[in-house]
Amino acid sequence: MRRPFADVERGALRLLLSGEKSSAGRPMPDGAQPGPGGWNRFELVFDDLASEVERLRAKGLKFRNDIVRGPGGAQILLEDPSGNLIELFQPAAQH
């Protein structure tokens, strides 16, 4: 069985690998599709993603999509001034 996602850690470094069936394989609202290599990006983790997105939007920052929710948590893609993607992520609550 092919998994849509892999998580590898070594010390303080964490590498997340997302396949075509993961949220990273979804098209953007404008129809853009990930190409070879997908949409590589850094991920920043937040406790309150919605508040952070609201704060950054108020400062005029540009997002590629709206918040997407899944079993692992919620995420949104922020574009830096050069067009590079930065994922803002809030993990799902653990029970």
Rank of each mutant, 00 (worst) to 15 (best):
V45E: 13
G31D: 04
Q33P: 02
L49E: 08
G19T: 03
P71E: 06
G60P: 06
Q90C: 05
G25V: 02
S18N: 15
A12G: 04
P71F: 01
P27T: 02
E79Q: 10
A32P: 00
P29R: 13
L85P: 05
G11P: 11
E87W: 04
L78A: 03
A92R: 11
V8W: 14
L78V: 11
A6E: 06
Q90D: 15
E9W: 01
L17V: 06
R2S: 08
P27Y: 15
L13Y: 02
G83Y: 12
E87V: 12
G73P: 13
I67L: 14
G83T: 11
L17A: 08
A24P: 00
E87L: 09
A58K: 02
A50N: 06
R14I: 00
G25L: 14
R26K: 13
G83M: 10
R3T: 04
N65G: 01
G35M: 06
L15Q: 03
A58C: 07
S23D: 15
E43Y: 05
P91T: 15
G72R: 08
S18W: 00
M1L: 15
A50G: 07
G19V: 10
F63N: 05
H95V: 09
G70R: 01
V45M: 08
L77G: 12
E79I: 00
G35Q: 07
V8A: 03
I67H: 05
M1D: 12
A50V: 13
M1E: 08
R14T: 03
F46N: 08
G60E: 04
G70A: 10
L61S: 02
L49H: 05
R41C: 12
G83Q: 12
W39H: 10
Q94A: 14
D80C: 13
Q33D: 07
G73M: 06
L77D: 11
K21I: 06
A32G: 11
M1F: 13
D66N: 12
V45T: 07
L13R: 00
Q33S: 05
A74E: 11
G25K: 03
G31E: 02
D80T: 12
D80G: 07
E87R: 14
E20Q: 15
G11W: 01
A6S: 12
F5R: 07
S22Y: 01
S18M: 14
E43N: 10
V68T: 05
A24H: 02
